[in-house]
Structures are given as structure tokens and as C-alpha cells.
């Protein structure tokens, strides 16, 4: 709004003295207008000296065992004697404690082992991907990364990555350029038969976070390259469409 229109409006409201021309008086009028119309101001200025929380928003901490006058003096709100009156675990036994009898978890032997190398890849089948593209949820003209898959809820969680699988390969006809962690042989065959391209890209946990949530980082860290022999072998293999295929010098495999 121009200055002229403001003045017209203010004088219409009887706020702007038509005879006055000084800028200073206009300035006061503008302030008064905004104050009276929108009531975002209180009498006196708000600053650090007069802030307070709502009354009743904070309750006083209960001080137990500090004399009879407090009402919580003698037994300190714990009642008389017994397990619950004692110190430790607030009077309650630990979870799994069976009154001194050997606990179930101790009675049964350990079994099996946990493989620290194990990775869980989210399976994604070609029919689902095709449905997502056809319903306009994924743009096939761009390179499809796991972020696009996750954002469009084609996959619901990312775990250690995404593996593209071949269900619906016979009907898959869309040429796409897709980057996933792994792809099955039949998926690679189907995508390439449709004129598309698959790249298997290595991501560690940090890399997945960078990929899916870049806004969480002030400075984007570099993507790590595979360090384990198994991973290096996988991602340098052309058969897996590894992103490092033919770049052995990068991963230190040239000697």
C-alpha cells in the first residue's frame, strides 16, 4: 500500500490530522492505529523484567521427611514398614524378580547367536514400483533414489537399504533410472529390458540418513565408500550393477 493510501485511510478513520504534514506525527498515528485495531499491545512495555509464566503452571516439589507441619514428615508418604517402605527401586522389586526363586531368564539356557554382519534390506518388487509410477507418486523421468521411494511411501522404512526384486517383471515396461542398495538378477534383467538402468549404491547408516534427511545436517558429510572386502567385491562387480564397477583404483583394489 502506498503512503498516500495509508494517509487516506487513516484520515477516514479520524486518526490522521489532515492539517499536519510532519512525518513524525504520521508515525505516531500508524502506531496508534495498529495498537487500537489489533490489540497486540499491553499497557507498559514488555521486556525481560516483566515476564512470567501462567499462574499454576509450575507446582512446588514435594519435600518429604521434613517435619510434621508438612503433613509428609513422619513416614515420608511411605506408610509403615514392609518392602515398599524400604529404599531402593522405590520399594518395588526389579522386573523379572521372582521373590528369590531363580528367574525364568536365568533358568533357560542361551541359544543361537546374533550375526553382527547381518543386514536387513527392504524388499521392493517391480509391480509395486510400477504401480507407484503409474499413479503419479514417483517421477520416472528423474533418477529414482531411496529417498524418493521413502518419501512417496513406496517403502515404509529403509532399514539397511532397499533391494529391488523381480515380482511383476513380465509386465514391467517403464524405462527408469534407479539407485538402490541391491537388485536381484531378474529385476536387473527386467529393468534393462524395458530400457532402464539400475545402479547398486553402497550406503552405511550415516549415508542413509544423509540421503533421506539432508535437512538434519548443517554440513553434509561425504558418503562413505565400502570398507569390508565383501562389500567392495559386491559393489565393484558389474553383474550386480555396482556403482564402483570398473573403478577398482578408488576402493584400493588395484594392488
Amino acid at each position: 500500500m502506498s503512503m498516500h493510501r495509508l494517509v487516506t485511510r487513516l484520515s477516514g478513520l479520524g486518526l490522521y490530522p489532515t492539517s499536519a504534514t510532519a512525518t513524525a506525527s504520521l508515525r505516531t498515528c500508524v502506531t496508534t492505529a495498529s495498537v487500537s485495531r489489533y490489540s497486540t499491545v499491553v499497557p507498559g512495555k514488555v521486556d525481560l523484567s516483566n515476564l512470567s509464566d501462567n499462574p499454576g503452571s509450575k507446582s512446588q516439589r514435594l519435600r518429604v521427611g521434613r517435619g510434621q507441619g508438612s503433613g509428609k514428615g513422619n513416614t515420608a508418604a511411605r506408610g509403615h514398614k514392609g518392602q515398599k517402605a524400604r529404599a531402593g527401586n522405590n520399594g518395588q522389586p526389579k522386573p523379572g524378580f521372582e521373590g528369590g526363586q531363580t528367574r525364568l531368564i536365568d533358568r533357560l539356557p542361551k541359544r543361537g547367536f546374533k550375526n553382527s554382519e547381518h543386514k536387513d534390506y527392504q524388499p521392493l518388487n517391480l509391480d509395486r514400483l510400477q504401480y507407484w509410477i503409474e499413479s503419479g507418486r514417483i517421477d520416472p523421468t528423474q533418477t529414482i533414489t531411496m529417498k524418493h521411494l521413502l518419501d512417496s511411501r513406496c517403502i515404509h522404512k529403509i532399514q539397511d537399504g532397499v533391494k529391488l526384486l523381480g515380482d511383476g517383471k513380465a509386465e514391467f515396461k517403464i524405462p527408469i533410472n534407479i539407485e538402490v542398495s541391491r537388485a536381484s538378477k531378474s529385476a536387473i534383467k527386467a529393468v534393462e529390458a524395458a530400457g532402464g538402468k539400475i545402479t547398486s549404491v553402497y550406503y552405511n547408516q550415516l549415508g542413509l540418513r544423509v540421503l533421506t534427511k539432508p535437512h538434519k545436517f548443517e554440513e553434509l558429510p561425504k558418503f562413505a565408500r565400502p570398507m569390508k572386502k565383501k562389500d567392495i567385491a559386491f559393489y565393484t562387480d558389474e553383474a550386480n550393477r555396482g556403482y564402483l564397477a570398473g573403478k577398482t583404483e578408488i576402493v584400493g583394489m588395484d594392488h
Binding site: T40, V46, L48, N50, L51
Partner: peptide
């Protein structure tokens, strides 16, 4: 720039 004044929120943030 025209939000209602909430002194309690200002207090909490400060």
C-alpha cells in the same frame, strides 16, 4: 509480526 502476546511463552523461552 501480529501474533497475540503470550508472556508465559516468552518466559519459558527465555
Amino acid at each position: 509480526f501480529g501474533a497475540p502476546l503470550r508472556k508465559d511463552i516468552l518466559h519459558r523461552v527465555v
